[in-house]
Structure formats: C-alpha cells, structure tokens
Design a protein around this nucleic acid. Structure first.
Lengths: 106, 106
DNA sequence: ACTATACGCAACCGTGAAGTTGCGTAATGG
DNA sequence: CCATTACGCAACTTCACGGTTGCGTATAGT
C-alpha cells in the first residue's frame, strides 16, 4: 500500500467515528480546547475523549501542545483537505468514464 | 443524532476500509462490475468482497442490480459528494473563525 | 438432463476498537 | 504545604468487523 493510501486509511478511519467528527466540529468553531473542556457535555469519560484525541492526532487531523497542566488541541485543516482530494479524484475518474462513454456512443 | 449525521456515519465508516476504497476506485474507472469480477485479483475470498459490497450498498455508495446469474454493481457518486460536503463545511467554519480572529485583533 | 458458474446465507473465529475503572504524577491555587 | 485539577498510562471487558468455510439455489452452457 502506498504512503498516501496509508494516510487515507488513518484519516477516513478517524472520521468514521461520530464522536471524533463531533470533536472536529467543535474545534473548527472554537479554535482551541483542552481534553477536559472537550469532554464536558459529552456522555463519555475524559479518558475516552483522550483516546479519540490521540487517534485524531495520529491521523494528523489535530495538533496538541502541553501548556501548564492542560493539553491544548487544535484543528489541522490541511489533512482534511487530503481526504477531500481523494473523493474528488474518484469523482473525476467517474466523470471521465462517463464522458468517454458518451463519446463512444456518438 | 440527525439523519445527515447518521448518513455520514455509514459513509465515512465505509470509506475507512482500504479494500472498500479500492472497490470504489475500480468502479469509478470500470463503470460496472460483478462480485466475482471485483474479487478477481484481490487476495480475499469472493464472500469477503460480497460483504464489503453489501456495506457499500448500505451506505448508498454503490447500487446493485441482479442480471441473470450475476449481480452488477455501479458507483453512486452523489453519496461521495455528501461526504465531501461535510469536510468542506468544517473547513469553512474553520476559515470563518480565523477571519473573525483576525478582525478582533485589528 | 447435467455440469459448472455466480451468488446469498449462516455459522464461526480472531483481532482491534471503544469504553470503563484505577492509579500515578505534575502543575495550580489558596 | 496541601488540596485540587488536568493529565497520562495500563489493565480489563465488550462487541463489532473482517475474514473464513460450508452449504443451498438459481441461471447458463453443452
């Protein structure tokens, strides 16, 4: 598997979980947040949220920095753009196929 | 959870698997294919491929039609577009936040 | 009519992922 | 200095997922 495919693997797997997509949405609006801050209001434990953040970080969808006794997370939209690119690539190939088909049909 | 979110769930979960993304890419180039045709060349059994196709169908990423003794699968690019929309939505919110931040900083 | 093909269904197995609890530790605030 | 807060690490449970094999059935070809 290519490096790009491996990256897509991690990114789409990360996006597959609704809790993680929720975290991403929150970060897209709020800018930065801590583990506890993100866990507030969610029906799962802080540790569970920390695990989700770890997988988001592994997929490079977020970055984290320790500041004092908190760890601040932030969105990395470039990686999201990579995922969108894969989708657009597939869509483009489909469109090409359709165009070729129409051409061959006269 | 909203209906749109439930849909995103199924779509991103379907895209998380590299075999399924491979099937989607094949269908985007080849147009249509049968179960056995898609299984040819893959290192897994026909049944495994059939299961992947079933989940792709459940996510409405492909459609299937029985013709004779084969089942023909085809890509449904509209659903892919939905996934791309979610990503773009998040990116847009991030951009808005950045713009607001720049404004507040004068 | 018989054989081979293409598929679906069901049972089963192993692994990883999501969740929990418990504990240890470093930074903050009074 | 002591209590509290915010984490990280580790062990454990549960369960869904990807894979397999076996079997039944309908269609196609000879």
């Amino acid at each position: 598997m290519s490096a790009a495919a491996a990256r897509a693997d991690a990114v789409f797997a990360a996006l597959a979980d609704p809790t993680r997509r929720g975290l991403i949405e929150t970060l897209s609006r709020g800018g930065q947040a801590s583990v506890s801050g993100l866990a507030k209001g969610l029906p799962i434990s802080r540790q569970a949220v920390a695990k989700h953040l770890a997988s988001l970080r592994a997929a490079e969808l977020v970055s984290s920095e320790r500041v004092g006794r908190t760890t601040v997370y932030e969105l990395r939209p470039e990686t999201l753009a990579d995922a969108a690119e894969w989708i657009e690539m597939v869509g483009a190939e489909w469109d090409e196929r359709l165009a070729a088909l129409r051409k061959s049909l006269g």
